[in-house]
Design a protein around this nucleic acid. Structure first.
Lengths: 375, 375
DNA sequence: TCATCAACTGTGTTCGTACACATTTTTTCA
DNA sequence: TGAAAAAATGTGTACGAACACAGTTGATGA
């Protein structure tokens, strides 16, 4: 843009240009300019048919010239339809990852409280495919205007999406997206990049010669956790592509039965005494951190994911050194916002896949990540 | 909150509760409930006087019970007043720090384009107090409804604020705040904490035994750059309070005459060959990074502030290892948003001083910090 | 007792858009 | 050609809040 040059000049000479108050053009203005009535313009704007080719041409000519943006507020009070949104996500408990996403939903619903939205939440256990199927099947009867999905299981979600597409119901993904579907938009994180960053962090935080380990959660059944796999790939690729050649060991631990971990983890650490850093590839880093604390081990650096209540505590007391976060509130907020933009204002995001910033949290900048919604 | 327990129970048993669609209460409803007319309720809500004690009591009783939130959209279209906002900040060039703040302003003005806002920008040279005085004096004639200030010089700003207070014009600070004033709200960063985090980062990124240096910009005249001082304090305190005892040397460089730096910086580095890390306390880290690159020095880690165009380039090519960022766009956006909330909706932030999150940017998470306004 | 004035209260119009409905124009076909 | 159907178009009202203005009440003093 050579606008930049002009701006520099203006700034240099202290010439101030106030924002162009290009007096909002109204539907009536367009109607007058095109020589038709406001009703006809409205029909064209909303694709409601019953418009002659000549009228359409006249109005579209004017529209092309004047950059009409209709008044969101007037629109909102006129549209008194109640919209129905179904939301299906893993159980959202306060202080955990999905609780933060839920906060984002609720924040958005509050921000847009002047729009009638009937929002139904459906929760499932992300470790239990049957629970997910049951939640998905609840959607069958309801005829929502849009659906927001936090998917975990690939096949089930694809089936759900096919059904929605048949009924022409738009859907949006949060947290992760499923290939082979056509969502309106998605708010996710590049998990591979997360893995790389995690590698970079752990590499920086531990001495060059030390060994490191990655810990994954044990899962019941043979369902794969896509996010963890991507993260692991990024993590390993970081070390193989950077000059930093380390010995990277793998281990696992149990989220559901934390008592089992003590022996197993301690044995693992005794067998690998060079390990000075552990990357926990899901949001349960606190389990490992707490275990190390209980055993009096203080010289092993732990890094993990997501600002959950427990992880926050461990970051504060220093037993976790860094966390990667992916703005769960913002994902929830934006999902609702996009839905409203689509349903009410017929405006879709130019970009379908939105990747969230990956925040690096350490003890020192942690306090400033409290008020995530001051926007 | 023991609500949490109930929620857990509900989730466990898959009981879904849709958001309480507590059917928005309207002014007419309140009027009916209180046995008065809508006009009277309106007078009370806007403190417009001419209300009898009995009416006031009746309405306030109803208001206390029903949690009335007036419809933002209806309010916006009814209020067709044009608001005038003056903004005084350092010259905002694209790709630099204040350019990002300016983007935030413009984004907000677009988001709220259905509200008539006449926004006048006044820029000054942050290295020149006379330029600042001249910009401030421009405000004298204008009678804005609110003023947004990006302050640099303490005394001048205090005088300006006194004048605004006399005229009952609210003002908001972005970037930093001035003690002894009464702004409506402020959007700033804890610069001391920034210093601590910078210390932590540089400490992690360099070998334990190496020396490190902090670089400040040379400034014309004796005006102090408050931000840099705070950052330096935090940086030094981090090293003296953590176990990490290092030799920290201080040096300075010139922003205005970069050619002078070559000899000076190289001499400094030759005299202190143990230095393996440099913290640049302002947003010009790229100057040092580029110099080191030109000299073929690759084993010195550079950390600095703010995602400017030049710093982005250096972060990408690895010559800067980490940047601390303070969400300048968000500051600008929120300043406008708060102003509108205050003027139109008579709603003030419960909290006056807002501290921005401090983002840690490295090469790997840099790509995801592009679309900062997808909210 | 009534005129006067202030204090108070209710009504009606406005904002810009959406949409139902009434009206006009055009097309279709016996 | 004319009646009926279909298509196109204009009009009017609603949304909820803000506010001007007209109307009502009640107190005061002559």
């Amino acid at each position: 843009m050579n606008c930049q040059y002009i701006l520099q000049y203006l700034h240099k000479h202290r010439i101030h240009i106030s924002t162009p108050m290009a007096k909002q053009i109204k539907i009536k203005d367009i109607a007058r300019m095109a020589g038709v009535s406001a009703g006809t313009v409205d029909r064209i704007l909303h694709n409601r048919g019953n418009v002659s080719a000549s009228s359409r041409a006249a109005v579209e000519k004017v529209l092309a010239e004047v950059d009409y943006k209709y008044n969101i507020h007037a629109s909102a009070i006129s549209l008194r339809k109640e919209y129905k949104i179904d939301i299906v996500i893993p159980t959202a408990l306060g202080g955990e990852y999905w609780g933060a996403v839920q906060n984002g939903f609720e924040h958005a619903l509050h921000e847009y409280r002047d729009i009638s939205i009937d929002c139904r939440f459906h929760y499932y256990n992300q470790f239990d495919v049957y629970s997910c199927r049951s939640a998905y099947s609840e959607l069958k009867g309801s005829e929502p205007d849009a659906v927001i999905i936090g998917p975990t299981f690939v096949e089930e979600t694809i089936v759900l999406c096919r059904g929605l597409e048949e009924k022409n119901i738009p859907y949006i993904f949060v947290d992760s997206r499923i290939e082979g579907t056509s969502p309106l938009t998605t708010y996710t994180t590049d998990q591979y990049a997360c893995g790389c960053i995690l590698g970079r962090l752990l590499g920086s935080l531990t001495p060059k010669e030390s060994g490191i380990a990655i810990f994954g959660a044990k899962r019941i059944g043979n369902r794969k956790a896509n996010n963890s796999l991507e993260r692991k790939k990024g993590f390993l690729d970081y070390f193989s592509s950077s000059g930093d050649k380390r010995s990277v060991k793998e281990a696992s631990y149990s989220v559901l039965n934390p008592d089992d971990n003590e022996e197993e983890v301690m044995t693992f650490l005794k067998e690998n005494p060079d390990i000075k850093g552990i990357a926990v590839l899901n949001s349960r880093g606190y389990i490992i951190a707490d275990l190390l604390k209980a055993k009096g081990i203080r010289n092993i650096i732990v890094v993990s994911f997501d600002l959950t209540g427990n992880n926050r505590r461990c970051l504060e007391d220093g037993s976790i050194s860094a966390l990667l976060c992916q703005r769960p509130e913002l994902q929830g907020f934006n999902a609702i916002k996009s839905t409203i933009n689509h349903l009410l204002y017929k405006q879709d995001e130019p970009q379908v896949n939105h990747l969230m910033p990956i925040d690096i949290l350490m003890k020192e900048n942690l306090p400033f990540y409290r008020e995530l919604f001051e926007i």
